[in-house]
Design a protein around this nucleic acid. Structure first.
Lengths: 217, 217
DNA sequence: CTGCAAACTTGACAGTGTCAAGATATCGAT
DNA sequence: ATCGATATCTTGACACTGTCAAGTTTGCAG
């Protein structure tokens, strides 16, 4: 019932949120580029130019939706964190699991915020939400960072890992079905990471003293 | 000089490729959703509906571009593979490096094919190219798969890892600049993976005999 | 009741994808 | 060389989109 509010729209400032709702539901069944100002307006029961008042343009609406996306993203991680014990690796597991919770609970938002589409970076709401997501990651990773190593490296490692897993599981899940691609659960893959961290504990992450040529890019 | 061919367009079947070229260049400076049939037509010096003949609709053009994207993707991996020695891990490194080569040489195609946008999965050209990419990964991973473990798990692990790294390095590189986020090179991160594989060698990848609750999602 | 500002509506314009129908070129057969 | 058939492209139209300017309604302060 998206047009339920169309009968008599109370001018109480709720339209902005209703438009975001409509946008999310539009993303859900039309894909990451199925957003439309006019259709959001119609679904919310207002005229075609009403969204232009609250969000200046399409990017404004997109950014507002992305802001909500990041906020839910943070909440998913926090929720798992609250249920986890305080062991550093348990907390890392928790945010990874939260990451996947989020991806499966809000696939449209997940795909949307990571679609490579440009948002209005100078929007305060968006900026704050996106920064908080990274701050959570950083905070959780901190205790696991080997002494003398750059914190960012582990953060990026972890984020690359779980993001890649989640992103691929969304976009490639139905690829090559005849191969019989079974999708392993996160825990199995995290064992790799855990073992790597253990093996790396004494050496420190970065100094690449391997013989063959790594690096570059 | 995109309109160079517009003076006298020789009807030799080159238009299809020119339109794809125009599309790629459009993606390059307008982003993953900056594609436009009419603008491609204009840049190629033909009428607005000409693309409709070669690619039935916008998704047809998108799919053709994505097919080229996957083909270049394969080539990037093969090129690194050709220069690598035949040690299994060297070959794994090679395709990861190829992955990153591709992402940095053709960022617009990289972002495009992984943007979550729908393509025409039943297009043969697209399908073949996308499958070959996965086939390369699978072939390179095969020698590294621990005995008795599902091959897909390592494949997904590796792909998650390098894809996440590449994708994040593209979309998040300029995030939080004041944090001073320095981007570690692939080699450093691959050490994690190598150590994990070494530590895992005897045990087999999957059987998750850890005490706390992994999995779910 | 009177302003007045916020929250919307109406109307218009350029741009888009998509389809149908017509025009034109290319090429093999005659 | 000419004919015709087929591939290739053009023209025209339609519904849809974002965006802006201007008008209109609403709710509230005085």
């Amino acid at each position: 019932m998206p047009t339920a509010a169309s009968l008599k729209r109370k001018r109480d400032g709720s339209l902005r949120n209703d438009l975001i709702d409509a946008g999310v539901s539009l993303l859900r069944d039309r894909g990451p580029d199925g957003l439309s100002l006019r259709e959001c307006a119609a679904n919310a029961g207002v005229s075609h130019a009403a969204p232009g008042y609250h969000f200046k343009n399409l990017m404004g609406l997109s950014t507002a939706i992305a802001a909500r996306g990041y906020r839910l993203f943070c909440e998913a991680m926090k929720q798992r964190l609250a249920a986890a014990d305080e062991a550093p690796f348990s907390r890392l597991e928790a945010i990874c699991q939260g990451y996947l919770d989020y991806a499966s609970a809000h696939p449209e938002l997940f795909l949307f915020i990571f679609s490579g589409q440009k948002f209005n970076e100078s929007d305060e709401e968006y900026d704050a939400a996106a920064r908080e997501a990274y701050a959570i990651l950083r905070e959780v990773c901190a205790p696991l960072v080997p002494e003398g190593s750059e914190p960012a490296h582990l953060e990026i490692l972890v984020w690359s890992f779980v993001h890649g897993y989640a992103h691929l599981s969304m976009t490639r899940k139905r690829e090559n079905p005849e191969i019989g691609l079974t999708w392993p659960d996160l825990g199995s893959l995290l064992q790799y990471l855990e073992r790597a961290l253990a093996a790396d504990k004494a050496e420190g992450l970065l100094p690449g003293d391997r013989s063959n040529g790594h690096g570059s890019s």
